[in-house]
Write a protein that binds this DNA or RNA. Sequence first.
DNA 1: TCGTTTACGATACGATCGTACTGTAAACGC
DNA 2: GCGTTTACAGTACGATCGTATCGTAAACGA
Lengths: 191, 191
Amino acid sequence: MPKRVDHDARREEIARAALRLCVREGPEAVTVGRVAVEASISKGLVQHYFPAKEELLRLAATMRRHDIESAFAAAVRPGDPPRTALRQVLLALVDLGAEQILTGHAFLASTAANPQLHRLYREGLSAATAAVARLVAESYGPAVAAEAEARILLGAAGALADALMLGETDRDTAVATLDLQLNRLAADPAS
Amino acid sequence: MPKRVDHDARREEIARAALRLCVREGPEAVTVGRVAVEASISKGLVQHYFPAKEELLRLAATMRRHDIESAFAAAVRPGDPPRTALRQVLLALVDLGAEQILTGHAFLASTAANPQLHRLYREGLSAATAAVARLVAESYGPAVAAEAEARILLGAAGALADALMLGETDRDTAVATLDLQLNRLAADPAS
DNA sequence: TCGTTTACGATACGATCGTACTGTAAACGC
DNA sequence: GCGTTTACAGTACGATCGTATCGTAAACGA
């Protein structure tokens, strides 16, 4: 019963298998053959959907970015005041989970050797920074340096996510640390 | 003239070749054969010094950690007051350079699949956090949550280093962002 | 001085890599 | 109904992987 499948959906399934493999067995385990096994299909079928391995990686990286952006979007509810939205977005980053974090680092490690990945990662980071900066500006007014604060917040939240993943911290402590920084911004800017 | 070489130094040379390769051509390019070419020696000689590839990676990761810790140590001068030392250490992180950053991310991406790397990375992060926390405590007194502030500072500095490497920011802006956070701590703690 | 050790090159080997190329069967357009 | 298209499996192939093994030559301990 061929021709009945959703081409794009099938590609995403395969790319997700690659991402799972990257997390569970490390980036160097992501080979066409093992992706096929992980996806429970034949090696030839992987080729059918991805003529070259690089396309697989590209889709996987693109999906990972979309996953993270979706997590951010899902964290805020339409009516939320900006400070709530800001906190929810940063909490979503802290709560991303090992799979998102690890594959993110894996792709980042290849950005110097792969211009396509470089652009994808750079754009994702840029968009996230801009979005958080906008929330910062809405939350604390024009007196604060929105982009600088956004980079600090995103960096702190990312580091907390890493520490959480590595077992260096528990979630309550991570949330408390994040709130420490957020409350400081709320306390009032000196200038 | 064999037997005249410094065994450990030779191992480090080879491991450095592996690190260069990881940065320039991506983590998946780090194979025994290509490391040999990068180090301008024979493939057999790489085996002579590293019976298994995993030992090569382990030494490379260990060296990378030591490199970073050395950069931190070199950033502070014996007589520096704690606030200066703290800033210098964080600046050293911002200025690490693409090679240290990228290989760091590459190793982090493998921590879930490699318990040895996991332990190494975890210990390195733990030591860095503790050291920065100590500087924070010395700088701002016992009223501040030293470890939490250290994680925020390290996360922010690391994110700035990433942004710098990706070309998202320039160094002056990164330093200004770091100082924004440091000055806020200095301004005074509310409690 | 002679056997052991060590540095190094070279080659070989089975496995696996990414990719190319089949074959087959089912759904579609005409 | 029939040819084209598409989903899929299987196989083949040259390259390269990590590792094992051998050869050689020079310094060492005895």
